[in-house]
Design a protein around this nucleic acid. Structure first.
Length: 531
RNA sequence: GAGGCGGUAGCUCAAUCGGUAGAGCAUUGCCCUUUUAAGGCAAGGGUUCUGGGUUCGAGUCCCAGCCGCCUCACCA
């Protein structure tokens, strides 16, 4: 028998003994007078003398997270909602039955304690127990008490343990919750309404990505998990919901990395009668305020850097290529060169010669297709050269039309669109544009995508006839944007991996864990769905 | 998908050049009525990720596999 099995047997035996004392093993409730945090807030300032004079009666409950028995007495700490409180149990102050229970308690068990407040010799606010209730048993040993749970894999697979023993993990997810709360409040204050659009779609549109496929039995209908809510949200703008936002999951059937999880949370929003300039201004304020509300400051520490959301630089895409052009690849291209679509392949070739020689792949080579629409190669150059260098919050604006099938063209430059992306710490965290609302033009753009799709590009957009029809009913000038919540959460929690800000990131299931947690097989999901 | 690194007791970690797998916490027993990493005495606990191979001898070296992490590719 392993140590763990031994402990489980021992604790089951203790559970039987607890039953023998007459306690319910899984009672239904405990009526407490204070949550632990509230109790500390209310009485944390009282002196020992005041507490002694008041003898304030309290009823508290929580999980035992520290246990120091001293024979005929003992101390323990209860934990509840992240707060801790010490209790003091002595044989001559509690009923004999409760003291027998005390002797049978293990770390991890849940109990309720009624007693009065006092301060110990060392000054700690403590409940002097007068009665104990048994609430629930922990049959398995908790991870070690001061190193916590270090194994990264187990932290992800058994997040409950991570949350239980690593205070930092709890803080990350509290911050994530505060971030979403702050963003939601900001949109509601701006007159937006929150909506939910289909996660299962018959056609996965709104982004360039490979979708997951699924199937509806009753309708015998193949379905895709959405890669973006964009086309549905804009249908709502057509329908007169002129300021809408959605915070929800997108699913993209692509690689996993420190910045990519197959399901991720996106805040996407659209407002009528605005353009991308309005959204650039608004996004800047939104990010600064969110950073401040979540972390207390606009400048946040991230991986040894300080990312200051209080200042957001703006840079054209072409200007960014010029600014970060590697010196080894010769002089940076001129503005005119960058405006010339025919020069793109030549510039990329010049860059690639350096990229291939650069140490440690600092500069990844870019692909140069034999025929490319204007701006495609330039965008690839931008991503290779500039993106990793954009450490401070930066708005990159104006993108090639060829990589933006849903964005409105710039009036003075038909091959370019009114689009921007926001970068911080080398990551793309937002993408917005003036929405294309000309149905004929949209149909042409879809047709171009269709050609690419037929040419083997699995990520090219499909034709969405209903979306074009919606546009034909008329969509006001509109601007829209998506903000990657997970990546923003990474920045605001100083997390190096997206998995650290997603409670249950996707991992390959292990045989021992099949049927548990997020690796649950399909056939077991049916009863849950019918609840 | 490719490359690099890792997997030792329930947890956190050791183990020299290939030579008897250890420690702390946790667990069990005894003592202990103001401790807080409580303390003292004693005890139990190992498929060294899995399967092969080399060797007198493998946690250590070699091969294959599994899982994870990092980098790259794809992407947001």
């Amino acid at each position: 028998m392993t140590v763990e099995e031994t402990i489980r047997e021992q604790r089951r035996a203790k559970l039987a003994e607890i039953a023998g004392l007459g306690y319910a093993l899984y009672p239904h409730r405990y009526d407490y007078s204070h949550e632990l945090a509230a109790l500390a807030a209310a009485y944390g300032g009282r002196t020992a003398e005041e507490l002694e004079a008041e003898r304030t009666p309290v009823r508290v409950c929580g999980r035992l997270v520290a246990l120091r028995a001293h024979g005929k007495a003992g101390f323990a700490h209860l934990a509840q909602q992240g707060a801790r409180l010490q209790i003091y149990v002595r044989q001559d102050a509690v009923p004999a039955r409760d003291f027998a229970l005390w002797k049978l308690l293990d770390l991890g068990d849940f109990i309720g304690v009624a007693g009065y407040l006092f301060r110990t010799r060392t000054g700690e606010l403590t409940v002097h127990a007068e009665t104990l209730e048994f609430l629930a048993k922990d049959l398995r040993p908790l991870p070690e008490k001061w190193h916590g749970l270090q194994d990264v894999e187990r932290r992800y697979r058994q997040r409950y343990l991570d949350l239980l023993v690593n205070p930092g993990a709890r803080e990350v997810f509290l911050r994530r919750a505060r971030l979403i709360e702050a963003l939601r409040a900001a949109f509601l204050a701006r007159g937006y309404i929150e909506v939910e659009t289909p996660m299962m779609q018959t056609l996965a549109g709104g982004a360039a990505a490979r979708p997951f496929t699924t199937h509806h039995h009753a309708l015998d209908l193949p379905l895709y998990l959405r890669i973006a809510p964009e086309l549905f949200l804009k249908r709502l703008v057509v329908g007169g919901l002129e300021r809408v936002f959605e915070i929800n999951r997108n699913f993209r059937n692509e690689g996993i990395s420190t910045q990519h999880n197959p399901e991720f949370t996106m805040l996407e929003f659209y407002e009528a009668y605005s353009d991308y300039r309005v959204l650039m201004d608004w996004s800047e304020r939104l990010l600064a305020e969110a950073a401040e509300q979540v972390t207390g400051a606009r400048a946040v520490a991230y991986g040894g850097e300080t990312i200051d959301f209080g200042r957001c630089r703006r840079l054209g895409l072409r200007a960014a290529v010029r600014e970060f052009w590697p010196g080894e690849a010769g002089p940076a291209p001129s503005e005119e060169e960058l405006r010339d679509p025919r020069a793109e392949a030549r510039l990329a070739a010049r860059y690639n010669r350096v990229a291939r020689e650069a140490p440690e792949s600092r500069y990844p080579p870019v692909e140069i297709p034999p025929v490319a629409e204007p701006g495609v190669i330039l965008t690839a150059l931008f991503e290779a050269i500039a993106e990793p260098e954009l450490r401070q919050p930066t708005i990159i604006h104006d993108f090639p039309l060829a990589v933006s099938p849903l964005a409105k063209a710039k009036p003075d430059e038909p091959d370019w669109v009114e689009r921007f992306e926001i970068y911080a710490a080398g990551m793309e965290i937002a993408n917005g544009y003036s929405e294309l609302n000309d149905p004929e033009e949209q149909r042409r753009r879809f047709a171009l995508q269709l050609e690419r799709r037929e040419g083997g590009d699995a990520e090219a957009h499909a034709m969405d006839e209903d979306y074009v029809r919606a546009l034909e009913y008329g969509m006001p000038p509109t601007a829209g944007e998506g903000i990657g919540i997970d990546r923003l959460a990474m920045l605001l929690t100083d997390s190096a991996s997206i998995r650290d800000v997603i409670l249950f990131p996707l991992l390959r299931p292990r045989e021992a864990d099949v049927g548990a947690g997020n690796s649950e097989p399909d056939d077991r999901s049916a009863p849950a769905a019918s609840r």
